[in-house]
Nucleic acid binder design. Structure first.
Lengths: 349, 349
DNA sequence: TTGTAGGCGTTATCAA
DNA sequence: TTGATAACGCCTACAA
């Protein structure tokens, strides 16, 4: 099928040596303009391009960055990955995407595959670096990986793994949310969703506690429910909430998907959003703006987050010493799902 | 940083020759159990793994598949890509993702990059293979690419490019939609969205015409509006529709995003979905199920589509002769956004 | 300015 | 059963 053509072929046809062709290709050394022209002609003619595998072998760098993530089908990751790819390209790297599908074994396999393929560095998102308690084996594996190639964690960390970290300020985002709700006179606030033991829930929940306490707001533990990160979970948890005698006036969700589920379920029970209950999401996915009544959410500044992660990794690759940990600010986006509490109204069921 | 360790190191430490180490690694030839054990021990000790670049160079195959697509951030593609990756992995290949961001220049660059990286085959989605009129330069480029490596088009084609094609039966999907609407007694049907000159619009629109004619339904050209494939476009087009004296009772959208936009706008104008107007989408993205009132849509059978595309490509790589063109059936999913026309109701404005 | 030779890490062939 | 050698495609000293 593919009679792949090499510098030797080009050299033959141009009546020069392979090294001269190579020189023309790299431009690192000078070649007589005339021979150069001749060689370029032949290169053009055959549409020749050097085998980057052979080059990588020689240079000991592949100009590839590996990205391990749980699931590209989640808008948070697909958005982030898109930004990362763009930044990597800008810096002369291509990216190698690996969906672990949240299976730690897949993560291990991919980690190994990426090393085999000689990527110059790895960006790790979600999965094991998002577990509150890190599994010893995975810690060992990560550390072993990091001996071979630089690794940057995005929005996560692992105990006993001294990786560089780039993350969004999820805590600050949560403070903003509670501040908003406080200003909107909400005093009865719930926190819904997220898997127990997953740090993106834990971080937000801790900030939730802090912020509530700071405003001297009482925390009702019945209103703090864990589940998962998807729409179904939001629906499920909202129902649980509705069975309770006392209901909150505002619900903070671990992400926008949960918020969507919550909103759907509440509406099915004829509870109006935001008139009866305010609902807040997190991540500001594309749909947050469009899902009626528009979801108040916290944007993770995908562009900055992705770019900084890639930049940090590339600096490490180049032997520089970037910040060990870098935090990207978040920003609250207020939309229709939240509003000021109306004194003349109350929710009972 | 990375004092990369080679079979020579392993050979030295095990007091055998590099070739023996290689034999242990590949398992292609027999080695004395005792030496094998010894070598494996050292391999284990250093956590050694062979450099796959070097292997690829020798084998002239990288076990990598390139995927070029417009934008991973669109649920249609992210879902599809996820399935493709899984299937590729199953067949022993890793995937190399490239977001062209709908820029033909990026497509060209990536095509070249993938060849440079010696991928064994390329899956091409969207972009230039989705243009009704193919640009000559891109045609030439595609043909040139196909001389070097097998290429499979997914849901697209190009004039004068004789590539293998795997696609969903978008026409059949549209027939199903019109049949449904017919059974629901709709007689006034609109078609909204999609860029003119993009084939995924053209195919659906042609099927729309066919199906309408088949049912002897009159087609009102004012109700056939083009725009884009996103939510904003759906909103825009719905407004245009509302300005007209006569309004359809059902709106068929080029995809779910457009449908979401249409539904939003109609609801803002106090038009009830589906009581006043039925709205149909296409693609059955994750959110179609959850966006109130639930969007009736056509699923593209992502799993089958992705798997078949990868299988076809891998067969080509292995010198087999798969079907030149393969069509995956679609399936209509009926949800809350469509219903039977109520005779006692009419929509005027 | 250009050519020769050696090496990047691996595997396959051939000989021992 | 094992080792030496050449080859994959490219690049860079070094020599000419």
């Amino acid at each position: 099928m593919k009679k792949s053509i090499t510098i030797y072929d080009i050299a033959n046809e141009s009546n020069v040596s392979p090294s001269t062709v190579s020189r023309v290709l790299t431009g690192n050394e000078r070649v007589k303009p005339e021979t150069k022209r001749k060689v370029l002609e032949v290169i053009e003619k055959y549409n020749f391009r050097p085998n980057s595998l052979a080059r990588s072998l020689l240079y000991k760098q592949s100009k590839m960055i590996g990205i391990i993530l749980p699931d590209i089908n989640h808008p948070f990751f697909s958005m982030l990955v898109q930004k990362m790819e763009a930044k990597a390209l800008e810096l002369g790297y291509t990216t190698f995407l690996c969906n672990s599908m949240n299976d730690p074994e897949n993560e291990s396999t991919y980690l190994q595959t990426l090393l085999d393929k000689q990527v110059d560095g790895i960006l790790f998102l979600g999965g094991r670096i998002n577990e509150v308690d890190s599994n010893e084996i995975y810690v060992a594996e990560m550390n072993n990986t990091m001996e071979q190639v630089p690794v940057v964690f995005v929005n996560g960390r692992m105990d006993n793994v001294n990786a560089h970290i780039v993350k969004t300020d999820e805590s600050a985002g949560m403070y903003e949310i509670i501040d908003l709700l406080w200003n909107f006179k909400h005093r009865k606030i719930a926190f819904l969703g997220g898997l127990k033991g997953v740090s993106s829930r834990k971080i937000k929940l801790e900030a939730f506690h802090d912020a509530m306490t700071r405003h001297s707001l009482e925390i009702n533990d019945d209103w703090i429910l864990d589940g998962d990160f998807d729409i179904e979970s939001g629906e499920e948890l909202a129902k649980q909430l509705l069975y309770m005698k006392d209901c909150p006036t505002a619900i903070v969700c671990v992400n926008d998907f949960v918020a969507i589920g919550v909103i759907r379920t509440l509406q099915q029970f004829d509870i109006r959003i935001p008139d009866d209950i305010s609902v807040i999401g997190f991540d500001d996915i594309y749909l947050a703006k469009y899902f009626p009544p528009g979801i108040t959410s916290v944007t993770q500044n995908y562009n900055q987050l992705g770019a900084k992660a890639v930049e940090t990794l590339v600096e490490l690759i180049n032997g520089k010493r970037p910040e060990k940990e870098w935090t990207i600010p978040t920003k609250l986006v207020v939309r229709g799902s939240s509003k000021m509490v109306q004194n003349d109204k109350s929710v009972d069921n």
